[in-house]
Design a protein around this nucleic acid. Structure first.
Lengths: 137, 137
DNA sequence: CCTTGACCTTCCCATAGTGGGAAGGTGTAG
DNA sequence: CTACACCTTCCCACTATGGGAAGGTCAAGG
């Protein structure tokens, strides 16, 4: 099947498929006589795998590792689990960071009565916040 | 004061300060005779403001708007509040998305006993997940 | 047989922020 | 005068992806 159908089938755009090939995440696609990329069921399976990994937030690098583990008969579940765990931790860190921003900002918004600019607690915070102590990043 | 000291004082790296100037977030810095950028207290105040806005997760574009509102005597607190609110909503969306990934992945990790690769529930999910129905993105 | 339109190809550009580093000028302390 | 820390501009890299141009291919219909 050609790239358009592969894209439609897997939900991975043609652009992305070509990109994944270019960076070596997937192997070079077979070509028809006229130079069109040609995908078989196994390629689709791989693209499905990649799509799912990306949906779970794995980076392309991590996805690449997962693909290797997937194809390696000697690999153990442990390696996959460890990768997943550290990825979970990274996402949890990100969530904490975002949540902290949301909390602070929500407080400021709650304090805001929509009055004159000069009384805006949000601007007052931005102006005077002790940026050098509890920085979020 | 020169850019290095400004960077040290505000916690915004020299690289970033130059970038902010280049994209027009801050005005062109004054220059010494020899061409060095020269910052005064007001510039530092602005950089502090920017730093804090960035810490609260505002994009540079949003930060630019905030700077305008900050400097506009006719602006009202309402405009700032609305910007903050929509930013909060965007961050909450992001959090929900990440949390959903974490939840799914945590479940898979919990099901994983670290045994052989062929029994790895994480790889099984990646292989067989119904990617076309409840996609996270 | 030729045209049309949907597909495909490669190639370059843009995005959002930031860091790294090269090549070269400046300012100051010893 | 030299050494060294600082500054300048300029270009490249990163993460992933989309947009679009210029041109080739294939199938259907006139």
């Amino acid at each position: 099947m050609r790239i358009g159908e592969a894209a439609e089938t897997t939900g991975v755009s043609s652009k992305r498929i070509r990109y994944y090939e270019q960076i070596g995440l997937i192997k070079q696609a077979a070509r028809t006589d006229s130079g069109y990329r040609d995908y078989d069921a196994s390629d689709i399976h791989t693209l499905d795998f990649i799509k799912r990994a990306r949906e779970l937030g794995f980076s392309i690098d991590e996805t690449s590792t997962l693909l290797e583990l997937w194809g390696d008969q000697n690999a153990t579940s442990l390696e996959v689990r460890d990768l997943a765990r550290s990825h979970i931790e990274a996402m949890r860190d990100k969530i904490r960071q975002l949540q902290s921003m949301v909390d602070t900002l929500q407080q400021l918004v709650s304090d805001c009565d929509g009055g004159s600019r000069s009384e805006c607690p949000i601007l007052r915070d931005l102006e005077h916040a002790p940026a050098r102590k509890g920085a979020t990043r």
